[in-house]
C-alpha cells in the first residue's frame, strides 16, 4: 500500500476500498456545536467529512475552524479551500494552520463568484485559481517549501483533491480538464452530483481511455433529492447540473409525502450502478441540509460497515 500522507481517506483508497465521504456546511454564526452535531450523525458511516468554505459566497463560520472541531472529536476532515477570498499568503498560512492540527485532506476550489452571496459588493481575490492551489499544496508538501522558496518547518502532510464536473460546459474539454488537474497534482477527485448516469459513464470511459483513473482516485458525487421541486430547481437553476427529465418525472410521479423516499431510492440506485463502473473509487454524498439520511444511504448501498485502516 503506497501512500503519501497519514490521511485515513488516502489509506482507505490505497487499500482498494470504495471510500465514502460526505459534507457538512458550517453555520451562519459561531456555534461550533452546529458542526459537531451534524458530524455525530454521520461519522460512523463515512471515512471523512468535507467542510465547505463559505459556499455560494455566503459568509459563514470558517472552514478551517469547523475542520478543527471535527478533528478534535476524532473525525477525519477534508478542508475545502476556495481561492476567491484569500491571496497566496493567506492560503499558505491557512494550510499551515490546518496542518498544525493534523488535518490531512484538502479540496482545492476556485469558489462561486461573490455576486451570489451576501456581500456582492466585495472584492474578489483569485490570486491563484483552483489548479494553482493544487500545485501550491503539493509544492508545500513535496518540496517542503513556501511558494517564495523558503523552507517550511514541519511541512503540511495533505492528501490533495480537486473537484471535477463531468456535466459542465464545454463538454469537449471535460476530460482534458480532469487531466490538467491531475497533472497539477490532484490525488483525488470529487465530482459534481451525478444524476445523468449515462453521461457520467461516458466521461469515465473517456477518462479511462487516457488512463486517468489510474492516476487519481475518482469519487462520484451524489445528492439525494428531497422533492420534485428540488429536482426541478437543480435541473433549471444550478449551473453545471445535469438532471435528466426521467429523474424529474420519477420524483413528480409519486405523492409529495413519498418523494423523499423516492429521492433516497434514486440515490442508492445511482451508487449501486456507479460502483460497478471501472475507475469509480468511492462516493461523495452531499446530503444538503439532510445529513441524517447519510447513514441510511450508506447502509442501503452496501457500503457499511466502513473499513478500518491503521
Amino acid at each position: 500500500m503506497n501512500t503519501n500522507t497519514p490521511s485515513k481517506l488516502e489509506k482507505i483508497l490505497a487499500a482498494g476500498h470504495l471510500a465514502v465521504t460526505s459534507e457538512c456546511g458550517p453555520p451562519r454564526g459561531s456555534d461550533g456545536e452546529f458542526v459537531t452535531k451534524k458530524a455525530k450523525m454521520i461519522k460512523d458511516h463515512v471515512d471523512a467529512i468535507n467542510v465547505t468554505d463559505n459556499q455560494t459566497s455566503v459568509t459563514r463560520l470558517c472552514s478551517l475552524a469547523a475542520c478543527i472541531h471535527l478533528k478534535l472529536m476524532g473525525v477525519e476532515p477534508v478542508l475545502q479551500m476556495v481561492t476567491r477570498d484569500r491571496n497566496r499568503i493567506a492560503l499558505q498560512s491557512d494550510i499551515l494552520g490546518a496542518a498544525s492540527f493534523d488535518i490531512y485532506n484538502i479540496l482545492c476550489l476556485s469558489g462561486d463568484h461573490q455576486i451570489f452571496g451576501d456581500n456582492p459588493h466585495g472584492q474578489n481575490v483569485f490570486d491563484l485559481d483552483s489548479i494553482n492551489l493544487v500545485q501550491t499544496v503539493r509544492f508545500m508538501r513535496d518540496e517542503a517549501k513556501f511558494l517564495g522558496g523558503e523552507d517550511i518547518q514541519r511541512p503540511p502532510k495533505m492528501f490533495v483533491g480537486a473537484a471535477a464536473n463531468p456535466f459542465a460546459d464545454p463538454f469537449e474539454i471535460r476530460v482534458r480538464r480532469l487531466a490538467k488537474k491531475i497533472a497539477a497534482g490532484a490525488e483525488f477527485i470529487q465530482t459534481q452530483c451525478v444524476y445523468n448516469v449515462e453521461k457520467f459513464e461516458s466521461w469515465m470511459k473517456m477518462a479511462r481511455d487516457r488512463g486517468l483513473h489510474e492516476k487519481t482516485y475518482i469519487l462520484a458525487g451524489v445528492t439525494p433529492l428531497k422533492s420534485a421541486g428540488m429536482a426541478r430547481y437543480m435541473k433549471n437553476r444550478v449551473p453545471g447540473m445535469d438532471v435528466p427529465d426521467g429523474i424529474v418525472k420519477r420524483m413528480s410521479g409519486v405523492p409529495k409525502e413519498k418523494q423523499p423516499e423516492e429521492g433516497i431510492k434514486i440515490c442508492v440506485e445511482t451508487i449501486q450502478r456507479l460502483r460497478e463502473v471501472e475507475g469509480v473509487r468511492g462516493f461523495h454524498i452531499m446530503a444538503i441540509e439532510w445529513e441524517e439520511k447519510v447513514p441510511e444511504i450508506v447502509e442501503r448501498s452496501g457500503l457499511y460497515p466502513r473499513p478500518e485502516v491503521v
Partner: peptide, 20 residues
C-alpha cells in the same frame, strides 16, 4: 473572466455564458 481564472473554465460556465 469574472474570476480572472488562468486555468478555466470554472464550474459556472453554462452554454458558453458566465454564471454571473
Amino acid at each position: 473572466c469574472a474570476k480572472r481564472i488562468l486555468n478555466g473554465p470554472c464550474g459556472g460556465s453554462t452554454k458558453g455564458k458566465c454564471e454571473i
